[in-house]
Computed example of a mutant assay.
Amino acid sequence: MDGFLTPQTILVGLLVLGPLLACVRLDTVRTAAVGAYAMVLCVLLGPVNDIWGTADHFLRLTILAISSGLAVYAAHVRTSRERALTTVARVAQEAILLPVSAQVGHIRVATRYRCASRDALVGGDLFDIAHTGQGVRVLIGDVRGKGLDATLSAARTLGSFRHAAYAESDLAGVARYLDTALAGHLGPEDFVTAAIAEFTPGRVTVVNCGHHPPLLLGDPVDLITPAEPDLPLGLGARPKPRTVKLQTGQRLLLYTDGLVEARDASGRMFELQEQVTLLRDFPSLDGALEDLLKRLDAHAHPALTDDDVALVLCEATGDTPP
């Protein structure tokens, strides 16, 4: 631009904006490359502005070099801090969502968890499994809201479940315990939707607290909807259990709304019923969930998708639980 302006107008000093803006988003190496490019331009524009070799030109180069160095340092500090925060987030996720064995009692299990933000590792979706004297109990839930508050609420929900799953004799009692435990800690407009399944040989019992119904991949396929709709946890949930038969080899999918509410470019939601064959017939549970997430990614439009996804796929086996 300097070449088209009058000799009295020299804009070469604006090159300093390049590295200063780069350090906000780019890493150290790329910020240094932008700074080096700005220095080269500053040198080449010296003759154009008729300041080559002058004290003015030297001063501009010095200021640009110092600014570029500061920008590189700022980029280094920022990226180091982001790496440290990522490590903290990963540790937090591992503490909140404990690893799940491939088989718990007489139930084979596969799980997947993914935040809506690619840069985040933890969110408001949650799941857990407990092998109790009453059966294998599986919790899946979704905390209203996002951010740190949602993560803290998810951690509190899981901590309460890990106690109630062993202490309560019936599944409705587990839900009532969670509701009471959360009511005193959630905000006036906060709540946790949840579904809790209890697997015993030949059957599965589900209580639903305002959550999407689990999908029983039998013949026929069945959404295990509650007999009566109930409130989410923290709002006075008092769900009534529903029990259905579960044959050896049948699978049950528990999921959060990030799966079924993902939209494509036209606004059409992801159709879970179209994925039944994949979920029911895929040889491995892990492979089924991997393919399901690939189909979800192919369907979802980024601008219309802003929710976490948690998945738990269970399969009844003929093994007698220890």
Rank of each mutant, 00 (worst) to 15 (best):
T62P: 00
S117K: 15
K240E: 14
N208W: 00
P188I: 12
G105P: 02
G147T: 10
S80K: 15
A89G: 02
T157E: 02
L85D: 12
K294V: 10
F4M: 12
G135K: 08
Q103M: 11
L148K: 09
T200D: 11
G53F: 00
M39R: 07
L252I: 06
N49P: 00
L139Q: 02
A288N: 09
F127N: 07
L293I: 12
G287Y: 06
S153C: 10
L85Q: 12
I10T: 10
H212Q: 11
F191H: 09
A74C: 09
D128G: 05
A300V: 05
I140T: 11
T54R: 05
A194R: 03
V143Y: 01
C23P: 01
G35A: 13
L235V: 11
V260D: 10
Q273I: 13
P226G: 11
D170G: 05
S68R: 04
E198Y: 03
T305I: 02
M1H: 13
E274M: 09
G147S: 07
D307M: 03
Q134N: 13
P214R: 04
S117R: 15
L235P: 01
L152E: 12
G135R: 06
K146W: 01
F270V: 10
D125C: 08
C209E: 04
V24S: 08
P241G: 11
I196N: 03
L313T: 02
I224M: 10
V204D: 02
L41K: 04
R78N: 08
T317A: 04
D149K: 05
A75S: 13
M39V: 11
D297M: 05
T320S: 13
I196L: 10
R144W: 00
D281G: 09
I63P: 00
V309G: 01
A38Y: 01
V276Q: 06
Y37C: 15
R114C: 00
L64P: 01
G123H: 03
Y177V: 08
A164S: 13
D190G: 09
